[in-house]
Write a protein that binds this DNA or RNA. Sequence first.
DNA 1: TTGAAAGCGCTACCAT
DNA 2: ATGGTAGCGCTTTCAA
Lengths: 345, 345
Amino acid sequence: MRQVSITDIAQAAGVSPSTVSRALQDHPRISLERRKAIQALAREMGYRPSQVARSLVTGHTRTLGVAVTDVTDPFVAEVMKGAEAASRKADYGLLFAMSNRDPSQEVAAAQILLDHQVDGMVVISSRANARYNEMLSGRGPKHGSQIPLVLVNNAQPGPNVFSVRMDNRDGACQAVTYLRELGHRRIAFVAGPEGGCSSRERLEGYRQGMAENGLRPDLKLIVTGGGLLEDGPRALRTLLDLADPPTAVLCYNDLAAIGLLAAAAAAGLHIPDDLSVIGYDNIPLSRFTIPPLTTVDQPKETLGRLAVMMCICALNGEPVKDAVLTGELIVRGSTNLHSKEKGPT
Amino acid sequence: MRQVSITDIAQAAGVSPSTVSRALQDHPRISLERRKAIQALAREMGYRPSQVARSLVTGHTRTLGVAVTDVTDPFVAEVMKGAEAASRKADYGLLFAMSNRDPSQEVAAAQILLDHQVDGMVVISSRANARYNEMLSGRGPKHGSQIPLVLVNNAQPGPNVFSVRMDNRDGACQAVTYLRELGHRRIAFVAGPEGGCSSRERLEGYRQGMAENGLRPDLKLIVTGGGLLEDGPRALRTLLDLADPPTAVLCYNDLAAIGLLAAAAAAGLHIPDDLSVIGYDNIPLSRFTIPPLTTVDQPKETLGRLAVMMCICALNGEPVKDAVLTGELIVRGSTNLHSKEKGPT
DNA sequence: TTGAAAGCGCTACCAT
DNA sequence: ATGGTAGCGCTTTCAA
C-alpha cells in the first residue's frame, strides 16, 4: 500500500475525488458538513497532500530559492535566519544554494534552484551580475515573464527583480563622522570584495564622510580586502607600514574588523588608545570582541524577512516596492578620542 | 507560449515524446544518431526538464532536507556548507529549515521539509527526540518504510536512521589531559545545551579525563550553559565566585569560550596567565580571538558532506554504516602552564 | 529502434 | 453542492 491519496479518501467517504479536493482546500462550494467530515477522515487516514502532484497542475511549487555566497559569513547566516522564518510562516519551502564566493559557482548554484522550479528566488550578498537576468528570463508561468528575484544588498535593474538594501553610503558616512567628532583626521578604510555593490557604496560613504568633514582624502588610507577575517591582519600591516599611519580605521565588515583587532593585539597595539576601529554589520559576535566593537548595525533578519515577503508579494501579483533601510551606528569600546585630543584625566 | 516541453521537442523533431524522453536520459535503446540530434535540438530550444512532472512519476524529488537548530551558529553553518556542496555535486536540491533552538519549532521545521516531499533528510545538532521517528514513519516509496534520516552529532536508533558523529568523549578527554600536562588541577567545564547528545558526551569526556588524570571531581567546577556567546560571561562569573576558582576551563564550544574570553578581558583577567581556556569546534573565528583559542577541531564540512552522502547511499539502497570521527586538539594561545609550575624566565 | 497509451496525484472546468 | 473528465509533463510498460 502506498501513501494515502485523495482518491483513497474519496472511496472511503463515498464521494468523488473532486469533492475531497474541494473539502481539503476549503473551497466555498461545498457543504460545511461534508467538508468537516472529509477533513476529519483525511486526518484520520493520515493523508498528506502531494505537493508534487499539486505543483504539476498549479504550476507553482510553493518553494523559494535562496542563493548565498557563503553561509559561514555571520551576516549571511543572520539574513538567512530571517528568510527562513518568513518563508516557513508563509508555508513556503526554502531551497538553499551556495556559491562559495565564486562567481562561476554562482551560476551553478542558481541553476539548481531553477531546476527545482522554485517560484522565486532571493540572492544574498552576491556580486550578482547581469547573468541572473538572462538565466531567469523565460522562467515563470507566462512566457516572456520570469520568476521574481529579490536581491539583498545588491540592486540591479530588471523586469521582476527587486531589491532590499541598506543605505550603505549613509552608514559609512555616519561612522566617519563619528570618528571625526572623536578628533580623528587620518581615517583609513578597509574595503570589501571587489565588484560588490555594498563594497562600493560603503567606500563612497567613506569618501563622502571624509569630504563632508573636511578631511583630506588619501588614497594610501584605502586598502583592499574581501570582507574576510584574514583581511584584517593584512590590512593592519599595510596601514602600519605607512609613513603617516591612521589613527582610526573603518572596516568593510565586522569580520575584517575582528581580524584586525586580533592582529593589533598580536602587534602589541592597544585598541582603542592606539587605534580606533569600526566594523560594519553588528554581527552577534561584535559584542564579544576585545574590546567590544563599535559598528554599523544592519537589521539582518529584517533584510531576509523582507526579501522573502517581497518575493511572495510579487508572486501574488501584488505591487512591490524596493526597500532601502538605514543602519545605525552602535558605539562600543573599540573607538576612542584621538589621543592628541585627550585631556588629562 | 509556455516553457518548452518534451512534446514540443517531439513535434519539432518529428518523433514521439517517448523517443525524446529516452534520448534525453541516454536510454540504451535508441540510435546514437537520433539521440545526439534530439539532445542538440533540446538544448537549442532551451528545454528544461520539469522536475515536478518527473517527480510525480518517479516518486522521488531529488531533494534532501536539512533541519538545523540555528544557522547562526558557526559550527552549524560550516556543516551546512559541506552538506550543500555534497548535495549540489550529486545534483540534489537542499531544502532548508531551522528551529531556532526551539524543540516545538523543530517539528514544524521538519514538517515543512516532509510536506515538500524530500527524499531524505539530515538533522544538524538537534536534541532530536524520538519524535522524528514517528513523524517519518510511513513516509517513503514503500509503505512501512520511511525516508532515510541522518543525524549529525546525535545518534538515535531507528529504522533507516543513521548518524555521523564525533567522538566527543575523546575530544573532551584530550583537552583535559592536555591541561593536566600543563599543570592544571582545578579544571572547570562549561556545559552545553541540556538534552543535547554532544553536551552529554563532552561532559562525560571531561569527567573521564579528570578521573584518568587523577583529578578530584568537583561538582562546583561544572557550570551550566547553552553553547551561546552569552554563556561565557555567566560561566566566568560563577567560576570566579568560587571559594577555590579553577585555573583552567574547558568550554562546550568555541562560542561559549569566546564569550568567556571577552568577560575575562573586561574583568581584567589575563588569559592564559590567569586562566587557561579551551573551546570546542575550531570555528574559523577561533584563530582570531585574543588570545587565539586552543580548541578541539571538528571536521565540520566533512560532517556535512558525509551526512548527505550517507543519505544518498541509503536512497540508492546501498549499505550505510554510521560514521564516527575523532577530533584533534589544536593548541593556540589561550592555554598556558599553570602559574605555580612556571619556572623563572 | 520507435510509437501509443497509461498513469503518477492532483486541480479545475463543465456539467448537472 | 457534487460528479465526471481532462490534463499538468513526464516515464514506462507494451506493441509494433
